Simulated assay, not measured.
Amino acid sequence: MKYKEISYSNEEEWLSIRKKGIGGSDAGAIMGKNKYRDIIDVWNDKTGRVNEKFTSPAAQRGKDLEKNIFYSYKIDNPDKDILEVDKMYVHPKYDFIRANLDGEIVYENKKGILEIKTTTINKWNKYVEEWQNNIPESYLYQILHYFLVTGYEYAVLVAEIKFECFKSENTTPFDLDKRLQTIVINRSDWEDEIQELLNKEIEFWQCVKNDTEPRMIKTYGG
């Protein structure tokens, strides 16, 4: 079965629709893989106990740069169709499992997910642990959530990484060290984790519907 689509006309309408389901940015927190949010934070948001605001300098920077990164990737990949997505996708069976993709990729007649991230590295060991031949777990679970919704076979994470860790007394105010890094995630490598995520999201949404606080079964890094 193919996913359903929901249209929205502005950010306020999108936020209202988003409250009625689980989005990709919620998945890592529900699984205990997000160091900034946990499952109780998501539950408080979905049950209306708090009104989460997604505003911070880092989040705003990411929002401002997203289109630039999208078009940069599009220009550098003329052999692929890079498509914009202006609708929310909904799981064909579970309408509370929803996705807002940054874009889609069509390559060799197969459609995939384009996910765009920005991050700043203040310590080199953070890059080694989370990005060097790796992907931060919260981002991974966001993509696994999108696999759940779309049924697509692959995703490409395009991350603009700014290195603050290399600044020293010898650098000038005009120095800027950045790289655009791409990571390919194949659905077939993560089928067990995707099934585990589906089970956990179903369990979590029952807690939302029943207004019952979910159990904290795992913490970030645990």
Rank of each mutant, 00 (worst) to 15 (best):
K46A: 14
T119E: 10
S56M: 04
G151K: 02
D41V: 03
W131I: 01
Y146G: 14
N125Q: 10
K80S: 10
D41P: 05
Y127V: 03
N44F: 12
R37P: 03
K111N: 08
D45Y: 14
A99T: 09
R49V: 05
V85Y: 07
N125S: 08
Y146C: 11
K93P: 05
K35V: 05
P92G: 15
V106E: 15
N100C: 08
D38G: 15
N133L: 02
T150G: 01
E115I: 00
N44S: 14
F147N: 02
L65G: 14
K67L: 04
Y141W: 02
E66W: 05
W124R: 10
D95H: 02
F70L: 05
N122H: 13
V128H: 08
N134E: 06
D79F: 04
D86R: 00
Q60W: 06
V158S: 03
A99Q: 08
F96K: 08
A155Y: 03
R98Q: 13
N34S: 10
I39W: 02
I116N: 15
Y152W: 00
N100R: 09
H145E: 07
N125W: 02
T118L: 06
T120Q: 11
V85M: 14
A59S: 14
L144I: 07
E130F: 01
K93D: 13
Y127C: 04
K110R: 13
W124P: 12
L83D: 11
A159I: 07
N122V: 00
V50H: 09
E108L: 06
K67T: 15
Y139D: 05
Y154P: 13
A58Y: 07
T120L: 05
K126E: 12
N34T: 13
H145K: 10
G103S: 11
I69R: 02
K87N: 03
V50S: 12
K126M: 15
I40G: 07
Q60A: 09
H145T: 02
G48Y: 00
L148N: 03
V128C: 10
F54L: 11
T47D: 05
I97S: 12
D45M: 11
I75K: 10
H91E: 09
K110N: 11
L144P: 04
L140F: 06
K46H: 12
N109L: 05
T47H: 12
I113D: 08
Y73I: 00
Y139Q: 04
P57A: 10
E160P: 13
H91I: 00
F96D: 07
T120Y: 11
V156Q: 14
Y89L: 13
L114R: 09
E66I: 08
E160T: 13
D64A: 11
D38E: 08
R49M: 02
L65V: 09
M88T: 07
N122R: 10
Q60K: 12
I143V: 01
T150W: 01
P57V: 03
I113V: 04
D64H: 01
P136A: 12
L148W: 06
G48K: 07
T118N: 15
H145C: 04
I121G: 13
Y107P: 13
V128E: 14
R49I: 01
E153C: 00
E84G: 10
K110A: 15
H145G: 09
N44Y: 13
E66D: 12
I113K: 07
V42I: 05
I105H: 05
Y154S: 15
V156H: 07
V158W: 01
F70E: 05
Q132V: 09
I105Q: 06
D41C: 00
K87L: 06
T47Y: 11
D41T: 00
N122L: 08
I105G: 09
